[in-house]
């Protein structure tokens, strides 16, 4: 697998950094790949657009920053506006359906969207929307193995919330699988 650059964008507090951490941990610890994560530090980490940069590769990673991400996950309108122009030609854009209106969507992109907030609310905690997004991302990109991701979710979320978070992950994953088979 060649070097893949992933960017996650959203508001500070939405679990953007935790999502990046879970992808990196799944790849580097449970999927025998190499991964680096760099998070944006500064005022953007405290309320406005916030981002995590992850590189996943079969080879050791020298340059840890991302330049043209092949995969982008956005959970806020501001993040969509600010970050989506950076996506590589033909890249994968994953959006939260109700939070992001993809106006002027680039024609070259593969776009997948999911009502993750609604699913999270149905599960009882709006907070787990980022984990729903992670399940969905795992299905539509295949960048990290699904079992590695489940393992990383389980050990990365607060104790006592593992069950809820795994349900959230599975919800997102199943939605992605259905979407791919044309059933959603």
């Amino acid at each position: 697998m060649a070097r893949t650059e992933i960017k996650i964008g959203g508001f500070g507090g939405q679990g953007v950094i935790l999502s990046g951490y879970i992808i990196g941990r799944a790849a580097a610890i449970y999927d025998s790949k190499h991964a680096t994560m760099i998070q944006a530090f500064g005022p953007e980490a405290r309320g406005s657009a916030c981002s995590a940069q992850i590189v996943v590769s079969a080879e050791p990673i020298a340059y840890p920053y991302i330049t043209t991400p092949q995969i982008m996950i956005v959970m806020s309108q501001e993040a969509y506006t600010k970050f989506s122009p950076e996506l590589a030609e033909g890249g994968i854009l994953i959006t939260e359906e109700e939070l992001v209106k993809t106006h002027n969507l680039r024609k070259d992109l593969k776009h997948f969207s999911i009502p993750a907030t609604r699913f999270a609310e149905e599960l009882g905690r709006k907070m787990v929307l980022n984990i729903v997004m992670m399940g969905f991302m795992t299905s539509v990109t295949g960048i990290v193995g699904v079992e590695a991701m489940r393992q990383a979710v389980k050990v990365s979320v607060p104790k006592g919330t593992e069950h809820l978070n795994l349900n959230a992950f599975n919800k997102g994953f199943e939605y992605g699988e259905k979407l791919k088979s044309g059933a959603a």
């Binding site: 990196g24 580097a28 190499h34 991964a35 680096t36 994560m37 760099i38 998070q39 990673i61 840890p64």
Partner: peptide
């Protein structure tokens, strides 16, 4: 700062 704040295995 980069090595300090970079997350890796």
């Amino acid at each position: 700062e980069c090595v300090g704040h970079m997350t890796e295995r």
